[in-house]
Design a protein around this nucleic acid. Structure first.
Lengths: 116, 116
DNA sequence: CCGTTGTTCAACCTCTAAGTTGATTAGACA
DNA sequence: TGTCTAATCAACTTAGAGGTTGAACAACGG
């Protein structure tokens, strides 16, 4: 697997279990046991998922007695958002063209050339 | 690997080669040979990458004689953007808290306790 | 000190991703 | 027809993901 930050982030997000873990953490800090509770898989499997998220920088694990409270870190998500930004123009253009097309059809002028 | 749409998209994006292919396609349609040209790997490998992108719905392949022109499809990127949206508030909050922290420091009150 | 709880480590299995090379299909064109 | 080009298919290798179970470690509570 690629080890650059963006690839690590995308790879971490490419799993429904891990996205569910992030969704849970968005509501606040949680321990591994708390995070594992809703899932059918073993605690160790969830621990591995958390390690993947940690490597991507999406989760930070603290220490409090025998617990390892996990917290969400959104910085990598901002990187994803920035990356997406380069393509946003592209899909907005698509909608613009679609809207214009719909307007032409509504006005019964779909054979005409659009001006402005 | 998970096969839900969002997982397929994230997995497709978790590779620098594939992201480079998308970047090239953002500039316009291209054939497999054109797309493969900048890379050190074999044509077949690039063809496989394109198949991954196609499965995620990020690329559409047409047919023109013996060429298979590839075009970019941004719809899955919008899905990613929507998914990210749920966390945007979170990281904006983080900046807000950071700003408040900086203000406290500026005002020389950084020794005070925060009550959560 | 001992047992319990929370968590990780280690070894293992299975499946698939990502690359290779070589053969094959499909269309253009002499 | 035969041959060139574009692209895929097929078989294979290597490495890693994602799951399991069982052992180990760390910290608390009796």
């Amino acid at each position: 697997m690629a080890t650059d930050p963006l690839s690590l982030t995308f790879a971490a997000l490419a799993d429904p279990t891990r996205r569910a873990l992030l969704a849970r953490l968005a509501e606040g800090e949680a321990t591994v046991n708390e995070l594992a509770e809703p899932f059918a898989m073993s605690l160790q499997a969830v621990s591995k998922h958390l390690k993947v998220l940690e490597r991507a920088g999406l989760v930070i694990r603290g220490r409090a007695a025998q617990w390892r409270p996990c917290t969400l870190e959104t910085a990598p998500l901002e990187e994803v958002s920035d990356w997406l930004g380069r393509y946003r123009e592209q899909w907005e253009d698509r909608f613009t063209r679609l809207d214009e097309e719909l307007l032409r059809i509504q006005h019964g002028t779909e054979g005409e050339q659009n001006h402005e």
